[in-house]
Design a protein around this nucleic acid. Structure first.
Lengths: 202, 202
DNA sequence: CGAAAATTTGCAGAGTCAGCAAAACTGCCG
DNA sequence: CGGCAGTTTTGCTGACTCTGCAAATTTTCG
């Protein structure tokens, strides 16, 4: 994949990363509504017009890190042993991606709070997660011999896994700091793998 | 809930409905990018400024029918017998909402195609579906004695059910016209309820 | 009817975003 | 090197979105 290593490609990647980082940082620091494209561009040392060559909206830049995360996770998923049960692979990949340091937790909470505060950013986040889900479905289809354009399975399991992680994070950020995020994610996976049986029924 | 039946309330609801209908119709007919707020407002016989009193973005108006759908479904869900297994209630409510007429199918396909064609509308759709998911989670929590602000269960099952329906629809619209949409939805539910076992494994 | 409350509207202003063409830059071959 | 070809950056412009504010209009209710 990443075979193009010319100066040109590296510069493009760097510009994109700088814009995404600036957008995210400013959104967290100042609040989304106080961040303009002009300010993001200035922070990344490019013209406002260039910003729009990389991102089609301010919100897209703010949540660009989700796409990067998704790319890393897809790579990880592809590296899992081919004979490992699909659910185990997914759980492994997602659990490994959770930063358990105190600093990581603090950052994550700030992220989620910033996103939650603005409907347009929420929509962009969901969009990014949906893109991630589609990538996952492709990878899963390839590994399980299913067809992402015809079979429900790869989409359903990718969606279920992604949603389990999102739900665990959202609930955790909402006040379950007494529990480890890791454990909450694991519990969500367990529930979904069990077919979500109704609690308190035989 | 809907106890306010004064002229004022009825007019507001009518204006909102007219704007949503106009926005959706124009988006399907002309394509999303060729629809301006001005045109929507004109079609609903109000000023452009009034449009923004009802919807905070063009896309929100275009997908407003999803919110209406969600409201109807939540009502249906609340009406299900309290002792019915949760999964059965959900499956029932969603399956009943599928319009199986040829005309309904054609409309649904045009809808999905219109949405798919524009990233901003996709994001708004996901946002609306997320709102629906949250409503469902509240209702489910109330019925299963769980707490939507602490427990994973209501969110996970609401998300799984909603995503099952969305996946079935998307795949169906993509070319599975040989199969009944109803059957695809039922199959998706069955897979999720079974915990998404890997196909072709013992 | 007439006052109080809510809704609609016009206007102004800040901001987003895309198309276009010129300027600046990078890669590469002679 | 030098310079051409292909890419990226940039400024400019125009259409459009969206919000705040205050005036005008409409509805409600005593």
């Amino acid at each position: 994949m990443t075979v193009e290593v010319g100066l040109r490609e590296r510069k493009k990647a760097a510009t994109r990363a700088a814009l995404a980082a600036a957008a995210n940082r400013l959104a967290v620091e100042l609040g989304v509504e106080h961040v303009t494209v002009e300010a993001i561009a200035a922070a990344a040392d490019v013209s406002p017009r260039t910003f729009h060559n990389y991102f089609s909206s301010r919100e897209e830049a703010i949540v660009a890190s989700i796409i990067d995360w998704a790319e890393r996770l897809t790579d990880e998923l592809e590296k899992r042993p081919a004979d490992e049960p699909m659910w185990d692979s997914l759980q492994h990949v997602f659990l490994d991606s959770v930063d358990e340091s105190a600093d990581g937790h603090a950052r994550l909470i700030r992220q989620l709070e910033m996103i939650k505060a603005n409907p347009a950013v929420i929509a962009s986040q969901l969009s990014a997660l949906d893109t991630m889900r589609r990538r996952f479905a492709e990878t899963i289809a390839a590994r399980t011999g299913t067809d992402a354009s015809r079979d429900l399975y790869p989409h359903l399991i990718a969606g279920a896994a992604g949603h389990a992680v999102k739900t665990a994070m959202d609930l955790w950020a909402l006040g379950q700091h007494d529990r480890l995020l890791r454990d909450l994610v694991a519990e969500a996976f367990a529930l979904v793998r069990a077919g979500l049986p109704e609690p308190g029924r035989s």
